[in-house]
Nucleic acid binder design. Structure first.
Lengths: 91, 91
DNA sequence: CCTACTTTTGACCTTTGTTGTACAAGTTTT
DNA sequence: AAAACTTGTACAACAAAGGTCAAAAGTAGG
């Protein structure tokens, strides 16, 4: 989900992976993996990416965090209950 | 939250920490810390605890996972949005 | 108030898991 | 064929998990 979004954003803004990799000073392989959800995106890159892709950092963070939550509860039989419970306890 | 629940369950069932520690084959200090949320409870202990405390394993797992979620989103400005988004994507 | 028991605290330790990264080679796209 | 992307493997660094031990501190009963 985050990967797909990042890819979409990149293409919308007319970049190739190499350019993004250069901006973030990482390997293009890393970008590829992130876009394919094979590696998590380092939180430290959110700010720069939000600038490059002209999206609010907050929106990107929301998606990023959502991914983390989904990863955490994946395969847990009580995923839904737990999320609902967490939510109700945070109000 | 999990810690408080565990303590409540233990007391309801009339045990002291030493007894629980013995059952789980760990140090009492560990039990103390878990009950005070200073250390996470290892998932591997859930089954035994649910038996000792006569609560369904599923219910204990729900609470345990809820704790993990809360820990994950703690201090994140987008916590609520992200949880809601995760939930909606899991339906 | 003593003392025996329970619980907490703090420092420490080892193992395991994750992250972030790199490089090379392969595949796909243009 | 060149450029872009993907994939496999490896690895060091670091953080977190899952404890232990000894000592301190709380708590009841006699």
């Amino acid at each position: 989900m985050l990967g797909a979004k990042l890819k979409e954003l990149r293409e919308m803004n007319g970049y190739v992976q190499r350019q993004i990799a250069a901006e973030l000073e990482v390997d293009t392989a890393y970008i590829s993996k992130v876009e394919n959800d094979e590696k998590p995106l380092s939180k430290s890159h959110l700010k720069k990416l939000s600038k490059i892709y002209k999206i609010s950092e907050r929106e990107l963070l929301t998606i990023w965090l959502t991914d983390k939550i989904k990863e955490l509860v994946k395969n847990e039989p009580t995923a839904k209950e737990s999320i609902l419970l967490a939510l109700s306890e945070m109000k």
